[in-house]
């Protein structure tokens, strides 16, 4: 038999044994990337009013269908103004991971949007003095809520990543990607 031929056989055998070496290590564990579970509104007002309202959903990602869902009702007094700070959290981590700091650091690429239904009158909230980003464009991580007369409604808060137009007031107008869509029931009384 020929020398080259033998060589080829040897090489094949070597490769086969090298690569078939069995691995016994533990299978890896996945991590949901940049997970947000919760949008929390820290609301403070006159007479020392200070409350937090959470919109928390663990559903949907990382394969879980039956995650925790907790949606607080926003209960505020009529015709008052409140200082609001929106926080985004990952409550699956222990201790809880506060993602707000990251979002603030990347505020040129992020935008909070607030939408009240109804827009005015009973059960409504109007918005003013939203905070701005590094280029003086809207960012709205902190904002002022002014409540309407007594009634019920809903408040929708969006966190938009990489909006193409920060002057828009709905995700359709701003473009970009929705990182959070939180819909709070509102009771003003």
């Amino acid at each position: 038999m020929n020398y080259q031929f033998l060589n080829a056989v040897m090489l094949t055998a070597t490769i086969a044994t090298t690569f078939s070496a069995c691995k016994k290590d533990d299978p890896p564990t996945p991590v949901e990337q940049e997970l947000i579970t919760t949008l929390r509104l820290d609301v403070s007002g006159e007479n020392g009013f200070s409350k937090s309202f959470s919109y928390k959903i663990e559903n949907g990602f990382g394969g879980g269908l039956g995650g925790i869902i907790q949606i607080d009702t926003l209960r505020l007094a009529p015709e008052l103004t409140y200082q609001v700070s929106a926080r985004v959290l990952n409550e699956k981590e222990n201790p809880v991971e506060d993602i707000t700091t990251e979002v603030i650091a990347e505020r040129d690429e992020h935008l909070f949007l607030y939408h009240s239904a109804p827009a005015t009158g009973a059960g409504s909230i109007t918005f003013s003095n939203g905070s701005t980003d590094g280029q003086s464009r809207p960012f709205n991580q902190t904002i002022i809520f002014s409540t309407g007369t007594s009634g019920t409604g809903t408040l929708t808060v969006h966190l938009i990543h990489a909006p193409s137009d920060k002057s828009g007031s709905t995700p359709g107008e701003t473009g970009g990607e929705t990182d959070v869509e939180a819909v709070f029931p509102v009771v003003i009384q």
Binding site: T12, P171, G172, G175, G176, E177, T178
Partner: peptide, 30 residues
Amino acid sequence: YGGELFYSHFSTELGIYRGAHTGNQSDLKN
């Protein structure tokens, strides 16, 4: 008789259209 040894390497890097990465159903609809 005979033999053959073959090695090939393929490597690719490609960008995915940024607008095809959407946040949720309404982003997609928009």
